[in-house]
């Protein structure tokens, strides 16, 4: 275990250094070999971007926090709706047949088109961010949760049936705990998507948020700020993912340790 972990760290470090080196090299080539006049915009030096990031970290962090907090709120809302829908659909086949096509259709509507509509209805940037993030979140959460609820083995249900457990108890003691790992799979997919959605809403005429920084930098041709903002956005997505991973570790302790194939011999 210890060796594997050390190896993992080495691999990660080599990867990060490798990317930076390749990036630096590519930026250099673009500027001095290809003589591209737009080189600084297309691919600025990573150290220049890093400097910009350090100089503007406060502004970027503030902007990021606005976007991220709304994404988190929307994520929480979308998760609740997703779980609720999954429970309803698991309760009856008819319900599932009725609801599922709507779920699919909801994912066919491009968020880019939906966002302005939502904004026009609610007339509030923050609420729009939350709603769109929730809209993006609920689908993967719902589908994965439903899949979890439907994957409970018949024997496990029969056992509770045999002692006359009511539906509430069956869900509380069996269905929900069983579906947790499926739910977290959905949450891991949804979290970065919720952040992306929130950034997207920023760009539709918001006054604050990381998306606005990206947009302004694009207009004002300040490529270093642009790249620093994009990096910040990427970090937000990654952080959101790892928050879910961390929560999963806390909530599902029995999945932390990789089980030995044979277990302990009697």
């Amino acid at each position: 275990m210890a060796i594997a972990k050390k190896e993992q760290r080495v691999v990660a470090i080599v990867w990060v250094i490798g990317i930076i080196v390749v990036w630096e090299l590519a930026a250099f080539l673009l500027k001095y070999v290809v003589h591209d006049p737009m080189a600084a915009t297309k691919l600025p030096y990573p150290h220049a971007v890093a400097m910009t990031f350090l100089e503007n970290w406060k502004m970027l962090l503030e902007a990021g926090a606005v976007t991220f907090s709304r994404a988190a709120l929307g994520f929480a809302l979308g998760t609740s709706v997703g779980i609720l829908l999954a429970v309803f659909m698991s309760l009856s086949k008819t319900m599932e047949r009725i609801a599922f096509p709507y779920l699919i259709v909801s994912q066919m509507i491009p968020v880019l088109g939906l966002a302005p509509i939502i904004f026009n209805i609610v007339r509030d940037m923050n609420v729009s961010r939350v709603v769109i993030a929730a809209y993006i979140t609920f689908f993967p959460v719902s589908v994965n949760m439903l899949s979890g609820l439907k994957s409970v083995e018949q024997d496990k249900k029969d056992l509770l049936f045999s002692i006359a457990a009511n539906k509430f108890k069956v869900y509380q003691k069996l269905m929900f705990p069983f579906a947790m790992s499926y739910l977290f799979t959905g949450l891991k997919i949804a979290a970065p998507m919720a952040v992306t959605a929130s950034i997207l809403v920023d760009m539709l005429g918001s006054k604050s948020g990381i998306g606005v920084k990206i947009l302004y930098a694009l207009y004002s041709n300040s490529s270093n700020i642009f790249w620093a903002s994009v990096l910040t956005s990427a970090f937000m997505g990654i952080i959101s993912f790892y928050i879910v991973v961390f929560a999963e570790r806390l909530c599902l302790p029995w999945q932390n340790t990789t089980p030995g194939k044979e277990g302990v011999r009697a």
């Binding site: 049936f161 045999s162 947790m180």
Partner: peptide, 20 residues
């Protein structure tokens, strides 16, 4: 009898709840 919870059942597989 089932509603009076008088059965104890053991299945072919252990049917344990992994999270407990």
């Amino acid at each position: 009898i089932r509603m009076q919870q008088k059965y104890g059942i053991v299945f072919q597989s252990p049917v344990l709840y992994d999270w407990r």
